[in-house]
Design a binder for these strands. Structure first.
Lengths: 337, 337
DNA sequence: CTGAAAGCGCTTACAG
DNA sequence: CTGAAAGCGCTTACAG
């Protein structure tokens, strides 16, 4: 690889002048600039990223935490989209994205240590265990800006989807279709689940709809088998619901199976509503009634805010809420009044 | 951030000795080693990655090309899995993963230029346009090892799924269910499609099954709407097929819609077979008959081979074929003999 | 077993 | 407008 020294020798200028010319300093004479740029091109000179990072203490590199446990991770559509949107967001600003490792060679490093070691300009926690001590440590650091998706920490910026608003829209839509017996299979308890459940109860209350205790049960997210079980139980109640909200669109597939196995019609006898707006939700028939999460805006906003913070801007929203969109679909059947 | 100088001063040894002690050189005395490691821990010393990379000309960093066009990209399940598996593979060897950007600040760089600039130890092309000049340039470089997934280049190593073998298994299974009128909606022509189509014709021929020209049509991958159109056309033929193979499991959803709209029963009147083995294929009922791609082995093998090449091993398979697995499912109906 | 010195490839404050 | 020099934080060949 050609170095700046090669360009200097070949062009007849000093390393200082070459560096300045190549970096667009205005004090460089027109002749020198031309000659230097030409020479650099000729010998295929490319600056050395690491030398530059070492000197400038700036890496134009963002670390991303993506803890992949059995139930989600990059294997989950939604997060895969998100990371891609985030990446495009930082890329257009000249930053690149590196996954944060936990091991370097044989030595274990914490997330924070790894981020320091690599000297990332900032970090995005896309998907991780909120209770993990290492994650908390990373999110609370003062060493560089951190943005987290769909979580809350005292210090880090966060970009979250509007879980309360999403379930509010969805519940209200279901009620507008004249359902009165509405059950909710929630995801397991988490920062995402809490506001959703609250929205559900709030809407039911303000519409004077009674929710029997046994109508609210819990299932894992994105676990059709588990959701199928829970829905099956609901369908064995004396007074079965006419509509069941499930944790997400993928889990909804399990709910369909439960309805069919119970010998009931979907969506006429038992309607379903999902969450996420994954691609198949639009393709299945009936189309799934759901809340589409705006992964594009989530990712882009996280990227924009992080880079603003890196570049020292002051007035950045600490918490940004991204609204979802109600997709009416066809899986919530309109009951007679 | 504490530097090696700080550790040296605090511990009373020289920078050289500190460096050696921390890197496990054996010539260091037991006392020195202990004291140095202790001191490093005390002041929270972490080596500087960029200084080390600069000096050692080794980055433990792998670049990954992920060109995301409208039809696939990280937004596609299969590739999302793959990248994750690949990442775990390199991570356990102490390498990390960075997406290759095309722009640095305002300057455009080619993929190869970016990889040089960042001094990646190696590159993996996970998903890209095979005909892109920049991709070809990257894949053919001598500057570092390159592994490509599901593509062929003269120089780069490749790890491919067994497309020929997959369709062979699938076709033979369909025939074993007594189907004789088998249509194939292929994906659009590509390095993936060609061997699949060949396998299809080979199996039909060796089983003396006639394939009318109009039984083989083309659709985009992962495009349920397009596949629905193609299947609808097939269902308007005078002699309609009893089984239709489609490009992939996701596209298969469109095919189901076409069958239902034609007033036919699925899978009794018209059976379907997909490809990929995506999660929903196991959850829908009937379960999809498909070939499950082994993304785990694909990603792991790509990672292992790339790192072997980086570390100078000689006897690495230039091309590795990873077999898929037939998932019988329920979407191919067993016809009477 | 330990350390002084050189050097990886840049950028930048300073001098001219 | 241009350049010599220092320095970013490491590693390693060499000397002792």
């Amino acid at each position: 690889m050609a170095t700046i020294k090669d360009v200097a020798e070949k062009s007849g200028y000093s390393k200082s002048t070459v560096s300045k010319a190549l970096n667009g300093y205005k004090e460089i004479g027109e002749g020198a600039r031309k000659k230097i740029i030409e020479t650099a091109q000729e010998i295929g000179y490319l600056a050395n990223y690491h030398a530059r990072a070492l000197k400038m203490k700036k890496t134009y590199s963002i670390g991303v935490v993506y803890f992949d446990n059995a139930r989600n991770g990059l294997k989950n559509d939604f997060f895969a989209w998100l990371i891609q949107e985030f990446r495009v967001g930082v890329e257009t600003q000249g930053y690149d994205l590196t996954f944060i490792n936990v091991s370097v060679g044989s030595q274990k490093k914490t997330y924070l240590e790894y981020a320091q070691y690599r000297a990332f300009d900032g970090v995005c926690i896309i998907c991780a265990d909120r209770e993990d001590k290492e994650i908390i440590e990373l999110a609370q650091t003062d060493l560089f800006p951190v943005v987290v998706i769909d979580m809350d920490f005292e210090k880090a910026m966060s970009v979250k989807s509007d879980n309360y608003g999403g379930i509010k829209m969805l519940s209200e839509y279901i009620i507008s279709q004249n359902h009165k017996k509405i059950a909710y299979v929630t995801g397991h308890d988490s920062f995402v689940t809490k506001p959703r459940l609250k929205a559900f109860y709030d809407v039911m209350e303000s519409n004077n709809i009674d929710v029997p205790k046994e109508y609210v049960v819990e299932s894992y997210y994105r676990d059709p088998d588990d959701t199928e079980k829970q829905v099956s139980k609901l369908l064995k109640l004396n007074d079965i619901p006419t509509c069941i909200m499930v944790p997400d669109d993928f889990a909804l597939l399990g709910a369909i199976n439960a309805i069919q196995k119970a010998g009931l019609r979907y969506p006429e006898d038992v309607s379903l509503a999902g969450y996420d707006g994954i691609p198949i939700s639009k393709i299945m028939s009936p189309k799934i009634t759901t809340i589409e999460q705006d992964s594009h805006r989530l990712g882009m906003t996280a990227a924009a805010n992080l880079i603003k913070a890196i570049e020292g801007e002051e007035d950045i929203e600490k918490v940004t809420i991204i609204e979802g969109k109600l997709i009416k679909g066809e899986s919530v059947y309109k009951l007679p009044k």
